[in-house]
Design a protein around this nucleic acid. Sequence first.
DNA 1: CACGAGACCTGTTCGC
DNA 2: TGCGAACAGGTCTCGT
Length: 291
Amino acid sequence: MPELPEVETIVRALHPALVGKTILSADLRWPRTLAAPSPLAFARRVKGQKIEEVSRRAKYFIFHLSSLREPQGKPFSLLIHLRMSGDLQVREGSYAPQKHDRLILFLTDHASLVTHHASRITPDATLVFNDARKFGRVWLTAEPDEVLGDLGPEPLDPSFTPQAFYERLHKRHRQLKPLLLDQTFIAGLGNIYTDEALHAARLHPLSPSNSVTPQQAEGLWRAVRAVLEEGIRSNGASIDWVYRGGEFQDHFRVYGREGQPCPVCGTGIERLTVGQRGTHFCPNCQPLEGD
DNA sequence: CACGAGACCTGTTCGC
DNA sequence: TGCGAACAGGTCTCGT
């Protein structure tokens, strides 16, 4: 489900509900959801951690924690990646587990009580990680860079400039579509926003990355940021049964629109398979040079 | 390094 | 209606 705009939307919803709460306990209902550490170490370490901040890097959620018991130690981070079908929701009050819930964290506002009798405190709220396809992963770590360290530039960050993007494109010799999906090249794009950005930039998904001109690179840079910002403004995209709430699916120009007219020129949108991903483009607006 | 295929999973939709 | 195939917002690993 989630690409950068969907994750950003969820972060904004979780932030006010979670900052300041303390974790009482964890219910890990599908152990493989936990990438690290072991379930036992996770249960022990997560208890009594206070959520200081909720943020995002690429498609990862970062819950910045602090421990009342070891305030001097290096703080832990809880990292969550939703992959294809994951979702995160906060439920106030009591909570009965539902189908596909993989991890449930029970929370309280009363941090000072936790150290002494966590198990006897009734939670005020619950953070639920639900994930039908079980691809999502959770890490609890004091070294988040071990998970996030290889990610490429954050496309909406001011340090991401068109000049740097042009140089990066020319260092590689790959088709644009799979390169934009490569999270070490640029972080946060997925299948929807990549197709939409290439269409907005009028570039063919199979164009070689080292063939784009500085002008085309700047156009793609602008397009990537524009579609991500439009996605965030729309609260993300809701497709099928998975996500809820966003409207960006009403703004798709090519994604999932095979056979329908291009909103720019009216030509029928075509679909290719590139790197085993459905790839949608307008053959008129996005010609392959030398074709 | 680039690329393709297979794996990891469950659910929905489509064609017959 | 039933039933299998194709497909789904992601990433990892392995072989060429």
